[in-house]
Write a protein that binds this DNA or RNA. Structure first.
Lengths: 234, 234
DNA sequence: CCTTCATGCTTTGTATACATTATCAAGCGG
DNA sequence: CCGCTTGATAATGTATACAAAGCATGAAGG
């Protein structure tokens, strides 16, 4: 009884996809790591076919880069790259709260408040992992409230590349009070269906995230250069 | 010497992808058509493997729907679906012109004006195919001017589903004067780097498109019902 | 000593064979 | 006559075998 979940019922390619995605997001597979089909298939106990399909999915989400006849590697995280994603996400997050203002149902509002409270409880634990999880769920409630399926899937895939920085972002943000305040403001604006206020709050929320992530990337880069100086590379 | 282009050098999966995409966009494969791997492979003279990979790509772009263990079919176009896409595209198109206002180079402006003039010349021909092509190129200039790679690829894939309606949209829009006027306004606003004006113009541009496409979908649906009444189905 | 070409190994691209599952129809039973 | 079960069939899921291309290594020649 391996898997211990319903994992046994979903196709191998999805199972492989989940495993690879996790490995990338947690940093087990660092940027630049080559993804070789036979090797991975060997490691995961499946053939090349599901591996290939999983890698294709990851490519479309921007987590891996493929070069024809050369192979796939974990996508490099550049400042430009992340900046591009965040620019788009800002526009879409603002759209999300706007649509949520217009369309959220009373049940949705209840759910949203619950997610907000949940987040505050998570913050109290001071455990990055729990906080990150609660944060994702909070945003998912808003996104779902838009009722726009395309928007939902886009937000999902644009969030992925940043999860590699989520823990640091959570840890970093000096005192989580800011996050809590921002969430409260968003909830209150959506509840009052105040579109301008909600838009502004969502925009600032992303801007803060951007600042934190960009700083993190710059730190990583410096660390890397230092490592190179000391011959730690290779 | 088939292909007559460099098609012979790109992987089979990409070649298959292009062919299938075209067949869907031109309506040769109507919505609901099942895409069976063996059949397609037989028809195109390749094995199932490249077919599968091409279908996966099309799925990620929303042109086909896959159901595990059941197969793939050409995505149904519903009003909701198209409305969802257009809602997102409005936000992204507005973002495009905003960024273009900030970042476009003098060469970009020259190129933009050229694209605008080109479009007006295309309109003069009164040939839907030429007009549609010029319209796409005009928008591509703006999108490229943003310098945001992620935005570029997103716009690309969100435009695809609507190409199925592009010809009708072009034909439909009562006198193309409106389109010409809108393009002129956008160009002028970008040139002056007037973000509010550019945003408004881009927003209206999409709203017009939305109206036209929604109308078209409703007409299609009625036609379909009529066909059913007369027993034309199946 | 450097450059270049050839050769072999590694890896991806493609085809095909085998396994599994969903669908449909026919037959049996109520 | 209706419904359930069961089996045949056809399609997808997965594995593997074969082809071709890229890259590195090394040897030979200048």
């Amino acid at each position: 009884m391996p898997g211990t979940k319903e994992e046994d019922f979903l196709p191998l390619r999805d199972s492989v996809y989940n495993k690879l995605r996790n490995a990338i997001l947690t940093g087990e597979f660092p940027p630049g790591e080559r993804l070789m089909e036979v090797h991975l298939g060997d490691k995961l106990g499946v053939s090349r076919t599901p591996i290939r399909e999983a890698i294709r999915m990851l490519e479309l989400e921007g987590l891996v880069t493929m070069i024809p006849r050369k192979g796939a590697m974990v996508a490099q995280i550049t400042e430009k790259n992340m900046s591009d994603v965040l620019e788009v996400r800002k526009a879409l997050d603002v759209l999300c709260v706007q649509l949520a203002c217009e369309r959220i149902t009373p049940e949705g509002i209840t759910e949203l408040k619950k997610a907000r409270d949940n987040f505050e409880k998570a913050v109290a634990t001071n455990d990055s992992r729990i906080i990150a999880q609660a944060d994702v769920e909070f945003h998912n409630v808003i996104i779902k409230a838009t009722g726009n399926d395309r928007l939902i899937s886009l937000e999902d895939s644009l969030s992925l590349p940043m999860y590699r920085y989520r823990y640091e972002y959570i840890k970093d943000s000096a005192g989580h009070d800011n996050l809590v305040k921002e969430h409260r403001r968003i909830v209150s604006a959506i509840e009052k269906r105040n579109i301008p206020d909600a838009s502004e709050a969502a925009g600032e929320h992303i801007d803060n995230q951007r600042r934190s992530i960009i700083r993190q990337i710059r730190m990583d880069r410096e660390e890397e250069s230092l490592g190179a100086l000391y011959g730690k590379h290779r």
